[in-house]
Amino acid sequence: MARVTRGLAIVLGITLALTGCATPAAGSPTGSAVTLQGDITVYAAASLQATFTDLAASFETDHPGTTVVLNFAGSSALVTQIIEGAPADVFASADTANMTRLTDASLTDGSPVDFATNVLAIAVPPGNPAGITDLADLAGPDVRLVVCAPEVPCGRAATALAATAGVTLTPVSEESSVTDVLGKVTSGEADAGLVYVTDVAAAGAAVEGIEFAESAGAVNTYPIVPVTGSASADVARAFVDYVTGGTGAAVLGAAGFGAP
């Protein structure tokens, strides 16, 4: 039996090693405030993938000894994970509603800071086969429009926008994420999709973006905050400052985000 137990331990050990489950050395604050040192994990909304990847890299360059691990997903999913105990040091949300959930759970270290805004734009397949020019065109009976479901931030924005603009939208599909909306547009299945202007920018040549005046009616605000209980609270705070500072504004602005 002893031999079997040892065999089991070896098997489990190998499994853990292969899956990288072994507990990494936790970010250890040195106690010295002179230089920043430690690892942080940043949970950021999926729409921040490109910008935050850039920002994390330049942050690490500016602060040798720090490591920024990024985790991108829908804001709502991220909040749920953090509330369930996921080891996040910083949370950057794509909307204020989800940030409120974290604040309500008393998991924010200080007040969230708005660092960017985003507005909706119309994404159409290259060549714009349905000839869409503005928001009103999306209500056309033959236009296959794909939006985000009202349960997710981009969908909430779309619903709010349609209400303020007085347009009745009849989408053929309400997707769970921006990626799924863009997927339907790039593949040509849909004639148009309502996504964030930054998503259009990130999609490159795969879609054409059409901006419209009514988009100001539904501006999405992105807040960021350190999460309580971080082992590297100083690094987390520094990263939040970095994003809200000049470098952050420049990188975000280049990607199409608006200033808060």
Partner: peptide, 27 residues
Amino acid sequence: TLTFAGSLQGTTRTLPLEIYLQRETDP
């Protein structure tokens, strides 16, 4: 289904898709 059919209540949003969506706001 998510990739190919889309997601619209009563037309293409099957139970797994509904669960996936509700998870966003209503766990």
